[in-house]
Design a protein around this nucleic acid. Structure first.
Lengths: 245, 245
DNA sequence: CGTGCTGTTGATGCTCCTCAAGTACCGTGG
DNA sequence: CCACGGTACTTGAGGAGCATCAACAGCACG
């Protein structure tokens, strides 16, 4: 009963106003914080928005803050000296954005769609990591998840054909952002969060090849497209077959 | 003085015999354990060897044990339904081998060279993770390192030419296993820990293309090869240029 | 109604894959 | 000792897949 009361207090009085309706408090890393820590963090954190295309973290930049993604999609890119670019990760709400234990990033983070963020100073989180094992555990779980995803994409990049790459991409996006996402739904509807150029950089292809493969999926009836961005997948299984599993 | 004495005890009496000369105790995850934990772990752990090519963790297998790699190279691979294969990671001593918090692996781990391992039951480590924040911190650091490496390879897989891929691979191997590895040495000498087939699976190429590119590097004087495996890189900078940075 | 951006479509060529043959190196057994 | 088979690697010829270059369509913007 006592703990029941305490827990109730957390949700009513203990939680900072800023965090009350925040998804990161439930599914994100803030779920690992005590009400006291949450209060302390909320005093130095700030919510803000970033427009599509805006750079959030620059390559080789000193990092002074981390963020939670509250909505939208963030792309992580790496660029070679001659300008060739590769997207090495996509992050969705309520992912944590930042590289703990390294002062400098070797990655560029950019808003792929309009994005809402909740940012806080690096030093605060670094300190809380030391104090709170639960926070480190959350970070480890997200990092392991990102590593699993990165390795899945390595197979796609290294061993799949252009057609399979595009199908795999559509499948991944459908699973992440279909608003009507029943997990075992046979169909999906969503808006592509990225331009053809972004998709090409993600798949290691050119925009022309991406365009041609999307056209092929469309003429084959695997997908329906309106306005170049809105996608309907009437039968996800057909798309899965195209993705080469 | 008291802690000084305690620390001295750790190194003389407190450390289990099995672990006394073990590299994992210094640079690996065991460095995060207390002498008591180390003793407890050593009672259920066992050192063993695996021959080149031996499967250490099978795809879709239930995992009942984790390991530290004491020597040798382990390759992590993923395979598509039709047999196409991609190496998604290489691990060297004293890396930790295993995927915490997941009972099943979606990856195959195989000895690329003869390998020495120190294995222990999954349950023991899972418990120690809960008890010891330092251990979780070590795991987080290794996972972040692996994620950084995976993302670097995504650029190589997605955006580099065959010639650049092979040069990048040689450069990475040189940095990991040149025994005379002075960090800012201009030259390097080492034995390739993998066959041409492995290298191809790592780079998303065919063995023929790998062979041709190695031949080209050889005839251009960038590398010298004896017995197909022993490699000398007289000037690492020349190789770096070929790797497309 | 131009201008710029995003996306599509077509023609051509290069990179790398596929198929095939051949070499070098090993341990085995005659 | 050499024949033998197996494995790893190399080299060549030809072709498929994707990149490159180029033109064009649709749409939003001032």
């Amino acid at each position: 009963m006592g703990t029941q009361n305490l827990r109730k207090d957390v949700h009513t009085d203990g939680t900072p106003v800023l965090c009350l309706s925040c998804e990161a408090r439930h599914r994100g890393i803030c779920g690992a914080l005590t009400p006291e820590q949450l209060t302390a963090l909320s005093k130095t954190s700030w919510k803000h928005k970033a427009a599509e295309g805006q750079e959030l973290v620059a390559d080789a930049e000193r990092i002074e803050s981390y963020s939670n993604i509250l909505s939208g999609v963030v792309k992580l890119t790496k660029t070679l000296a001659d300008g060739r670019q590769q997207i090495v990760g996509l992050q969705f709400a309520p992912d944590f954005l930042g590289r703990p234990f390294k002062a400098e990033s070797r990655i560029t983070a950019e808003a792929a769609t309009p994005v809402q963020l909740c940012s806080f100073p690096r030093s605060t989180i670094d300190r809380m990591i030391r104090e709170s094992p639960g926070l480190e555990h959350k970070l480890l779980e997200q990092t392991l998840k990102e590593l699993d995803e990165a390795r899945d994409w390595m197979v796609t990049l290294g061993r799949k054909t252009a057609a399979e790459k595009v199908a795999s991409y559509l499948l991944m996006i459908a699973r992440h952002i279909d608003p009507s996402a029943e997990p075992d739904e046979a169909s999906a509807t969503f808006d592509l969060p990225m331009t053809r150029a972004d998709i090409a950089d993600f798949l290691g292809l050119t925009i022309e090849t991406v365009s041609r493969q999307i056209t092929k999926l469309r003429t084959d009836g695997v997908i329906v497209i309106e306005n170049n961005r809105h996608v309907v997948v009437p039968d996800l299984e057909r798309l899965e077959i195209r993705a080469g599993s």
